[in-house]
């Protein structure tokens, strides 16, 4: 079976030949498109390391069939920063030491970007913690992660207001 997957990946229109229907979005990114920033921690939707934005929403790439992403927009960690200009979430993760080994970090950051876009957590740390609970961190960087998400969100809000003004 050969199909062509047309989708937008990190802002670029891509046509990818899919020779095997079993390929997940995660394995497509990692093994065929050399986008290895997205990590595989469990491959079963239980750890969040593979979190990407699919049509603007955070999902587990390991449980997403690549073929079902036809016409979709996918944003991965590689597409988040503009050159060396970090996204505020990335910068805040560094400042608050929101990681140690770094393996869950791309997933944490994409999840945080998704959480902020969802706009349900507000500035309540407890809601941020709940909203980030789909991303396991075995090193235990949760305190820094929560602080980073709150700070980045505040900064993004200030930016948005600045642009509106």
């Amino acid at each position: 079976m050969n199909s062509t997957l047309s989708f937008t990946l990190n802002g670029m229109r891509r046509e990818v030949a899919i020779d095997d229907p079993r390929i997940t979005l995660l394995d497509l990114l990692r093994e065929r498109l050399d986008l290895t920033g997205t990590k595989k921690g469990c491959d079963r939707g239980q750890c969040g390391a593979c979190t990407v934005l699919l049509n603007g929403r955070r999902v587990n790439a390991c449980l997403t069939l690549a073929l079902s992403c036809d016409d979709a927009e996918v944003l991965t960690i590689e597409g988040l920063s503009e050159g060396d200009h970090l996204h505020p979430v990335q910068a805040a993760f560094i400042e608050h030491d929101g990681f140690q080994c770094g393996f869950c970090t791309p997933g944490q950051i994409m999840s945080a970007v998704g959480l902020i876009q969802e706009g349900q957590a507000g500035d309540d740390p407890e809601r941020v913690r709940e909203g980030m609970s789909g991303n396991l961190c075995r090193c235990g960087a949760y305190a820094g992660i929560t602080a980073a998400v709150l700070e980045a969100q505040a900064q993004l809000h200030r930016q948005t207001q600045g642009e509106a003004a």
Binding site: L35, S81, L86, Q90, F93, I94, F99, G102, P106
Partner: peptide, 14 residues
């Protein structure tokens, strides 16, 4: 840190 937050840190399986 820059490598880790941009996904450019290359772990074994990458």
């Amino acid at each position: 840190a820059l490598l880790k937050v941009t996904g450019r840190a290359r772990y074994a399986a990458d």
